[in-house]
Design a protein around this nucleic acid. Structure first.
Lengths: 327, 327
DNA sequence: TGAAATTTTGCACGCGCGTTCAAAAATCCC
DNA sequence: GGGATTTTTGAACGCGCGTGCAAAATTTCA
């Protein structure tokens, strides 16, 4: 049924080793013979069995990708870039969904059992355990959007703090002073750094937050928390949100209350996901360079494959302010 | 470095075959001995190498998943369910992104070389070629959201036509008569069936489309095409869109023109993606049951693995009208 | 207690491939 | 043209695992 290198060898009248060599770029094979073998192989529909190849060799070409809730815009956007970068560089992404109630330990072990060349983890939580397991099994690990305490793993992460400084600077220069913060899920690195950035920047301008609330990075939580903020009697003139989805929710909340954006209140997001520019009020936000992030993640992975003992690196990719009409 | 079954055997004082049996559920092994082996294995951090296992056995546990543009809400939503279903059933999804300019032929061949147990294709286009390649290599194939002409592959697809009938029925009963159609990318199966459903249903009520335009399933195309429809002097009272994203775009367009929804014009979507219920105007739409779709896709795959020669099946999953405030 | 029936175990093989090593073929130089 | 050197080739091995088969160990029954 399945055509193996032996079949090709027989059909081409050479030894099996010959076939293997014909498919190995650097191997020393007579040009004529290689062509002949490749022709026969193609005619028979032969392709080297990557599973068998992975058994002997050091590489399988498989990379585990741990993604958060894919149906969220940012995760999907990042995943798209990650998968594309891996794919076009000859890797095959093994997708592990980090959904709620998922047994991540079991899942990562399962992936590791496939002898993945490495793992890229883009899910906010449960990273510590995963890091340990990867390290124990010797699989290179790269974290995205999160750096581990005491430098426990390679990571690439955007400059959350700088991004928030830029946002705050813009708002302050617009004369806004009564600013509120809408944070995301509490145990995430993004929430921590972004909120820290906001507070630092405000302090620098002699200001402080008028209110703080917390959503879960979803649009719907943006709506409900946004309503709560707007309904309070704080006469806010700006709401800084931890991500775009919540900012869009707050825009919606403002519309429901007849509050003008950005005249009455400015609303800002973070990430600049596709879709932040659309909708009723194009979002002023900070661009999170996911493509560069994906590229750097792969680079870190390959660096560590080459030298598993090198020091952990943390790459900070740059962000840019994207001023639009919401603030 | 890596701990193999031999290491465990040595440490446990048994033969390697013993170790293998201890990890094989159905095998006949003394209970005491199995426990002993498993204990030693755990202590050593041993897990069977799934690559090696896949080499001999008929199954690898790998399933290729071809997804369209992941950053679009519907694709992401479907992918999330697919991956979750596969994952929780012991399969490992190999994600192939069908981005523009991707060499799908090369990518699918590459995945096939990993001896995947099957492929699930959820990307609108380029399915014919993929189907041929899968069949040639004997890998079961399941299409989602598309059925091939002359029944060329197993497929699961929602009942587009019925969904559109329900939508049209609702609009007509509201007294709407000047109805326009905003279609999606031309060569997609969804666009064809949905547009067919609208026309059939309208004809049944003695009506016909007042206008037709075509976007590309994206929100931005919904905005631009929506503006075009609304700016025409057709005094439309309903716009039926081929998916939710475009419908949201049309809602936005209506807002820009100060046209009230649904009082002046009704706007409907399709899929009921998360997010269709949020935003300025919760969408009247048709629920596309992605979870059931994912489940059925896996079922078809497993059915075909068991009997590769059985007739191709096309599962039509049911849809339900979701009336909200947009129409 | 001894032989027969029944587990339980270990040996050996093969999955499809890359790769080492020595033999064979081709090339070279004088 | 013959011997030395280089290139090309093919047989054999191992990667880590599952499994068929026969030997060994255990249990059963009289």
């Amino acid at each position: 049924m399945r055509v193996t290198a032996d079949d090709v060898a027989k059909a081409a009248g050479v030894s099996r080793a010959m076939v293997s060599r014909a498919f190995t770029p650097g191997a020393s094979v007579a040009v004529r013979k290689r062509e002949h073998v490749l022709r026969v192989a193609k005619a028979l529909g032969y392709r080297p069995n990557l599973i068998a190849r992975g058994l002997t060799g050091q590489r399988t070409g498989l990379v585990a990708v741990v993604a958060g809730e894919i149906s969220r815009p940012y995760e999907a956007w990042l995943l798209e870039h990650l998968v594309r970068v891996l794919s076009t560089n000859g890797y095959q992404p093994l997708l592990l969904p980090a959904f709620r109630d998922a047994n991540m330990t079991e899942m990562i072990d399962h992936a590791l059992a496939y002898q993945v060349d490495g793992a890229i983890v883009a899910a906010g939580s449960v990273s510590r355990d995963i890091a340990d397991r990867c390290q124990a099994s010797g699989a290179p690990l790269v974290l995205i959007g999160r750096v581990l305490e005491k430098n426990g793993a390679d990571a690439v992460c955007c400059d959350n703090i700088k991004g928030m400084w830029q946002l705050v600077e813009r708002l302050v220069k617009q004369g806004r002073q009564r600013i509120a913060w809408l944070g995301g899920t509490a145990d995430t690195f993004s929430d921590q750094e972004r909120s820290q950035g906001v507070e630092e920047a405000l302090a620098h301008y002699g200001l402080s937050l008028q209110a703080q609330r917390r959503g879960n990075f979803s649009l719907s939580s943006g709506v409900s928390e946004g309503l709560a903020l707007l309904d309070s009697r704080l006469s806010l003139d700006a709401i800084i949100c931890a991500n775009d989805a919540m900012a869009l929710g707050v825009v919606e909340a403002a519309a429901q209350r007849g509050i003008r954006v950005p005249d009455d209140v400015a609303i800002t997001g973070f990430d600049d996901v596709p879709g932040a520019a659309w909708g009723r009020c194009p979002l002023t936000t900070v661009r999170n360079p996911v493509n560069e992030t994906a590229l750097e993640a792969l680079r870190l992975l390959e660096t560590r494959v080459q030298d598993p003992t090198c020091d952990n690196q943390v790459i900070r990719v740059g962000v840019t302010l994207v001023p639009r009409s919401s603030g």
